[in-house]
Design a protein around this nucleic acid. Structure first.
Lengths: 119, 119
DNA sequence: TTGATGTATCAAATATTATTGATGTATGAT
DNA sequence: ATCATACATCAATAATATTTGATACATCAA
């Protein structure tokens, strides 16, 4: 369990996604981000926790559609949820985005090598 | 033309993808990243320019498949190409990844507001 | 306990993306 | 001029993801 947590924590930064497991997590994260509705949800949640009903109002989309996208985001670790009465509140888990940021940082550093020549 | 370039340059950071054009660019970039073969290609190119034949050897994948993914990456602005004789060399355009990094930075900053409570 | 509300989930239909094998095109070597 | 190489592109198929409308479930209020 502890090992798994640690793996998840380092999957981008340490291994540059060389293992299959790490790769899957990374891809799931990117896929989760790569969709307009989900990106809107993420940006909305960056202003704070919201229930599904809030998101429905903001976006004017069907409930089942929003729930579907929330599920994708949750499974990718981008958001977490908590129940309060009838409402379920979602919030960003910024650590996922942080790991993505670290991966990019690593790549950019790689590109600075004299041999690597990126744009 | 100049306006378009400027738009592309700022699409993540300035507008947080509020315009439709900007949003499409952002999604295209994320979609381009969200696929295992393409991610491998990106990481390979972070070590320097490669021709298709190099990538074929490294990955042991069919040529048409690699070309397909290179096209997706190119259209998303993640890589650029140049021809030299019979070979076409691809390299990373790190600016695309930089813009993604900036977007994340912005989101994370947003999350630090007292009202926003992210994980 | 009944009914309304907030949300998840499901199955079917649709849309999008990726793979495959074949063919086309340009380049350079002979 | 012919041929092999390096790559792009295409059409058909397969695989995945999304949308939609319906239904199910839990919570709360009356």
């Amino acid at each position: 369990m502890a090992i798994l947590v640690k793996l998840q924590h380092y999957y981008w930064t340490k291994q540059l996604m060389s293992s299959a497991v790490a790769n899957k997590k990374a891809i799931d994260l990117l896929k989760a981000l790569a969709e307009p509705i989900r990106l809107k949800i993420i940006e909305s949640l960056s202003n704070g926790e919201k229930c599904v009903c809030d998101l429905m109002q903001e976006t004017d989309l069907a409930q089942s559609k929003i729930s579907f996208h929330l599920k994708v985001l949750k499974e990718a670790g981008v958001i977490t949820d908590r129940q309060s009465g009838r409402w379920i509140y979602y919030k960003l888990d910024i650590r996922a985005l942080k790991s993505l940021q670290n991966w990019i940082k690593k790549l950019r550093k790689e590109c600075l090598n004299e041999t690597s020549s990126c744009e």
